[in-house]
Computed example of a mutant assay.
Amino acid sequence: MYNHVLIPVDGSELSEGALQAAIALAKRLDARLTVFYALPTASRRPTPRCHHSTAAS
């Protein structure tokens, strides 16, 4: 059937579950497993909040 399984992960809890399922599937199929770790792009990362204090002069 399949001889290669590609699973993308991003470190989330949901992707951890998907990885476990992919491992089980690859074992059942005697297939090769490739894990792809995806990072969010810079434009999609949360913007750090900066708190500026102004000194009265």
Rank of each mutant, 00 (worst) to 15 (best):
1 M>S: 08
2 Y>F: 15
3 N>S: 14
4 H>F: 04
5 V>F: 12
5 V>D: 09
6 L>M: 10
6 L>N: 07
7 I>L: 15
7 I>Y: 07
9 V>T: 14
10 D>V: 03
10 D>M: 03
12 S>R: 05
12 S>Y: 05
13 E>A: 12
14 L>D: 07
15 S>L: 03
15 S>Q: 03
16 E>V: 02
17 G>Y: 06
18 A>S: 06
20 Q>P: 00
21 A>E: 10
21 A>G: 02
22 A>C: 09
22 A>T: 01
22 A>I: 02
23 I>E: 13
24 A>S: 07
24 A>W: 00
25 L>T: 07
26 A>T: 04
26 A>P: 05
26 A>D: 09
26 A>V: 05
27 K>T: 11
27 K>P: 03
28 R>Q: 12
28 R>A: 14
31 A>S: 15
31 A>E: 10
32 R>S: 09
32 R>M: 04
33 L>R: 05
35 V>I: 14
35 V>R: 06
36 F>H: 15
36 F>R: 13
36 F>D: 11
37 Y>N: 08
38 A>T: 02
38 A>W: 06
38 A>C: 12
39 L>Y: 15
39 L>A: 14
41 T>F: 08
41 T>G: 12
41 T>Q: 13
41 T>Y: 06
42 A>P: 01
42 A>W: 04
43 S>A: 13
44 R>T: 10
46 P>S: 01
46 P>K: 01
46 P>Y: 03
48 P>Q: 02
48 P>A: 03
49 R>E: 11
49 R>V: 06
49 R>T: 02
49 R>A: 11
51 H>K: 08
51 H>C: 10
51 H>Y: 13
52 H>E: 10
53 S>V: 02
53 S>G: 10
54 T>V: 14
54 T>R: 15
56 A>N: 02
57 S>M: 00
